[in-house]
Design a protein around this nucleic acid. Structure first.
Lengths: 210, 210, 210, 210
DNA sequence: TATGAATGAGGGTTCATTCAT
DNA sequence: TATGAATGAACCCTCATTCAT
């Protein structure tokens, strides 16, 4: 705030909407759509309420713009996984590791998930976009990786609806962190978590199988 | 409403708070804490706003009472699992099946989960109670079952923080149903889901495990 | 305000909407629809803004209700004129005298006319209702009276669109009083005005006709 | 807007205030003083809000300037009537015909009348100026014409407050057009209207007088 | 002269809460 | 116990006005 004094008018202006979106993110996350106050969002930026309305017509539009702003589709993630090599298991692990980082460990995505859960009913479009841009591509990718593993003889054949199960530990970690946020349930150690996750995923719980 | 005519006045009175809690559940679920209106809750019961305040001091207290009312601890579930017999795997499957029914398939618990995620920050006590009454006992039970399996030589030994991973498909299904509610992601068939879930949990994804 | 203390709750309640409508009339007349403040209307009644909204959903609805409340159709006036006897001229004079009293001399109708002129564009229904309930019946009545006079040989035959001209002095007086309200143009003496009005209406300005 | 391209910069500048006054007229007419938005006025001209404030200190000053700009006193009208010849009746008819054209048929004057009626209370000076520049001179002129007619033996002698009555059909037509604007009451045909108006004015309604 | 970002004082509306009945 | 009129504190949004550029 102090060093923004040096910015020119034009720079300020280009910055404003982003500052507001950032502030909106924090307030909407903390209080939900209805609970958040435009006044508080403005305060966070250091401007007055009116200024928010210079850039966003309504609180609702601001909310939607904020969601769009922070919802950077998993383009890169999918791109990376496309270039993976190695066994199907290796590629699946790489993908799940990336997903873990992007969903469970990244605060932004995590809190976006909270908003999707809590405000989804009020903003159905939000859900649709979230599904199309996040869920569907990821699920499709996982399906593919598993199918390839099946075809190469690495993986056992498994009904098609199972992808949720494969990624479940990631979403579950995300949700538990949203709920407990280090209060009761400690944030798991990334490496240890993934090790156990993958071990169970690939080998299962039973000692002696067949 | 029609068959309540048969109730005596005393019964009516005893019913009021519960009717209000039921109505509160629906409104809070639909609109969140801030978004829900006491007026709408009263309307649902067929009384006026003032009546709600006869039974509950504030909207906040009503919310908390509602959560308590619907949060029936998994006493019976834990009791049932205590009396299970058979192999560790059998007992674990029984427990997970029960959990699935109670969390993923039961609308009340599911929506309670939504409220825990969306309103938890505003009601920290809610989180604590939820943890103590739901999460902790369940996790402990799972831990136990697995430990027993390890001791009996059925299960491989696995780090202690893994229980989340074991139940993850259940919470994930719950959350996905909260988000999409049959709009994009179809509700999975219970039997097929559990079959795959357990198959993966016990045997893992790999074809050839020595 | 002081003596309302004696009223029972029920009496108060029955009175409230009317008190509000009265207050609304004054504020809307003084400041127009946009300029009037709900707060000031409430103040006038001695209640708070919220109370106004107990009775009227929006400022717009309040405005419309106020107009309806004060727009008592000229039922009685028309009824009276229906029972008139005497020559056509006598009956026409009686009618015009009544009209003068109801439109030009009655503050309520006069100010209602101001609102019709100033807010009509924003409230087209207002205009339609005003036309159907006030203008049209009066015009029709005048037309009839003149037609009867023509048929009985009292009046000269005159094109049908002239009724406006016959009542023009009344509307003109109304509008001038609205504009000047005794500031520049003194309010005319009723008797003198009507005498001249009728003299001109019946006999015209020319000394020697034919 | 297209042909303004040809104007020099200096011409443009000289035009600005007038463009703004024109735009202000339309917006104030449509929405009243309080309802009109400076932003919309600026939009109409194709400039921004700030520009309006370059030329006019406040919205109120702009309103007053606009009224002054469009209130071109009836100088020419009075000048023309000064040069009239013929009988008193002829001269009166000429004058009333001109008045009809300037008041009832000219949209600008008509809408100015609306503003005088609706905003007069908020701008008392407006009323005074309107009276001094419009009403008083016209009334005086009419008075004169009639007096001359009386002196020449053409007109009957009539109390001095009657001038309103003589011009009433003009103001009435104006007001009715303001209210109904061709929606319910059709705009009268000029010639037919004036013919009836003058016929009634001079000859009265009665068949047999004296 | 013109811009337009920013302000800030409201204004309409909502709604949890109170309390006399 | 139940009502519902009334309150008043917010909250969203608007808009006349300012001012640095």
């Amino acid at each position: 705030m102090a060093d923004q004094k040096k910015l020119t008018r034009a720079e300020q202006k280009a910055l404003r909407p982003i500052q507001i979106l950032d502030a909106a993110f924090e307030e909407f996350v903390r209080n939900g759509f209805t609970g958040a106050r435009v006044d508080d969002i403005a305060d966070r930026v250091g401007v007055t309420k009116g200024t928010v309305y210079v850039y966003f017509e309504t609180k609702e539009k601001l909310f939607e713009a904020m969601i769009s702003h922070f919802s950077v589709p998993f383009q890169e993630l999918l791109a990376i996984t496309a270039s993976l090599s190695g066994s199907a298991a290796d590629r699946l692990m790489s993908m799940l590791g990336l997903l873990y980082d992007q969903i469970a460990e990244d605060r932004t995505t995590r809190e976006l998930t909270r908003l999707v859960i809590s405000e989804g009913q009020r903003f159905p479009d939000l859900i649709d976009r979230h599904h199309d841009q996040f869920i569907a591509p990821v699920i499709a990718k996982i399906d593919n990786l598993i199918l390839e593993g099946v075809e190469s003889g690495e993986f056992r054949e498994i009904p098609v609806e199972f992808s949720d199960i494969v990624v479940a530990p990631i979403l579950t970690t995300t949700v538990l962190r949203l709920i407990f946020d280090d209060r009761r349930v400690p944030t798991p150690d990334r490496e240890a978590f993934l090790r156990t996750y993958f071990d169970l995923l690939f080998n299962g719980l039973l000692v002696d199988r067949r």
